[in-house]
Write a protein that binds this DNA or RNA. Structure first.
Lengths: 262, 262
DNA sequence: CTTGCCCACTCGTCTATACGAGTAAGCGTG
DNA sequence: CACGCTTACTCGTATAGACGAGTGGGCAAG
């Protein structure tokens, strides 16, 4: 039995001043919310909805485009339109850079992912010296050039995060920090070995829609925002020693912070 | 001189395999990024672009719809399509609930906004007892019913945040917390007076596209995500005494956290 | 059985047209 | 001068049709 004859979707209200394509989107959204269509399940095809509602194809596509913008569904060329599955999320705890987590040889990302039973990967590794942007320069205290460490993180083959660390050259140049693999405990461990005892971090969080470049790098579906996190690390002299600029697929992350009430 | 004859926008590449409406969107996006169209400025009308590129109107509208999805532009019926201005953002510092900020009579929101020179407002105040959702019940330690305090925050007339606080009935019922105006220092001050000395907060942050209800409540333009923040307050006995569920217009906020490096 | 082609079905792109409705400016009337 | 109407321009909604391209199943040839 076709899903359309089974009363999953209702009729249009011609007397309503709500646009037809919105009414259709409303009905589909409600059906999804109520679980009539489950995650990953295929929605009726455009042609089926054209028949069911007696509207033109562009009207149906208009409805789908609303739901895509809300991140509820995604279209696959040649296959159909599907309810977008909610991917497993990665929780980032606020103590993830605590010194005690820095003892092991592997990076926090790898350890965490292994623990969660997923397959972690890091690629697009790039380490180079470059001119600091205005923003980075300001955050690092008026430096002109910086060491930039770029990398992309993937979980089970899916890119979830793209991060760039910036460090002042006078700190990083010629040290293991300038190597592709900085060694156990990562660059924070190296910074401390170099005499920059870390005191605290500042994190700034924004959310926005991705740029086309970010869509490409993170393989983002329509309707998925990004979380933009900029972390600055300060040593015990109060000097900023690193800025890490991170763009995360918002549907793959929950950030978690613990704050004292003092 | 029309913006279209002045070389602001280029030509289409018919040999490219990139769809025409994407090429047009690319050109408009680049013009915006380069500042050729400034914030709040009107883009060429659909009709003008139809003439300029020699395409049909639906193709131009398709281009605009891409840019709208990216949150770059917004259309106004009868007026035109405009570059979306970046609204002033509100910075939320991680110490915003520190005890020392609780001394004054006014709420943190009012004080902050006044200091920033904007006009703050709180409306949609609702205080009532209700059944706890599964999630809230879990967070508060298996309570069945809760006191819910709902309110919407506006800056200069624009809604920016919608928040609901949930408190266990055995704590809140019959206290000033159950009043629309809980008095100076807010409910956290009242909780401490009632013997629940606050120890720490946990905040969980997600970003996603808004539901239609959220679009309505926060007057969100297309392409603006929301930040969903859930804060749990714990007293010195380790008991969760409040859960605050907040949905913020992502283009109006930067969250800022300070973390120890220990 | 395997290979390769065809075909039906899917969404993607684009055109052309029509009418509705919000906006703002101009113009004429009182 | 003030008000209201007209008009031109804007985007919103909807139809009908065409062709392209990705997918997957079935069928026929080897």
């Amino acid at each position: 039995m076709s899903p359309l004859s089974s009363g999953l979707l209702g009729d249009l209200d011609p007397t309503s001043d709500r646009a037809v394509f919105r009414q259709i989107a409303d009905q589909l959204r409600e059906a999804i919310d109520r679980g009539r269509f489950r995650e990953g399940e295929k929605l009726p095809s455009e042609a089926e909805l054209v028949d069911h509602y007696g509207v033109s194809r562009m009207t149906v596509r208009n409805s789908f485009s609303i739901l895509q913008g809300e991140g509820l569904v995604h279209a696959e060329h040649g296959k159909g339109v599907f309810v977008r599955p909610r991917p497993p999320v990665r929780r980032l705890a606020s103590d993830r850079f605590a010194r005690r987590h820095r003892e092991q040889g592997k990076s926090a990302f790898i350890v965490e992912a292994d623990a969660a039973g997923s397959h972690p990967q890091v690629d697009s590794l790039e380490v180079k010296e470059e001119k600091a942007s205005q923003d980075i320069s300001t955050r690092l205290g008026s430096v002109r050039r910086v060491l930039a460490r770029r990398r992309r993180y993937l979980l089970d083959g899916r890119p979830v995060e793209f991060a760039t660390s910036y460090l002042p050259l006078d700190i990083a140049r010629g040290t293991p920090i300038a190597e592709p693999n900085p060694g156990p405990g990562g660059i924070y461990a190296r910074l401390e070995e170099l005499g920059h005892r870390l005191d605290h971090f500042e994190e700034e969080i924004r959310a926005r829609m991705p740029s086309p470049a970010e869509v490409k790098t993170l393989h983002l579906a329509a309707g998925v925002p990004v979380i933009h996190l900029v972390r600055t690390a300060f040593d015990s002299d109060g000097r900023p020693v690193e800025v890490c600029d991170t763009v995360m697929a918002a549907d793959a992350y929950v950030l978690s912070y613990q704050l004292p009430a003092t």
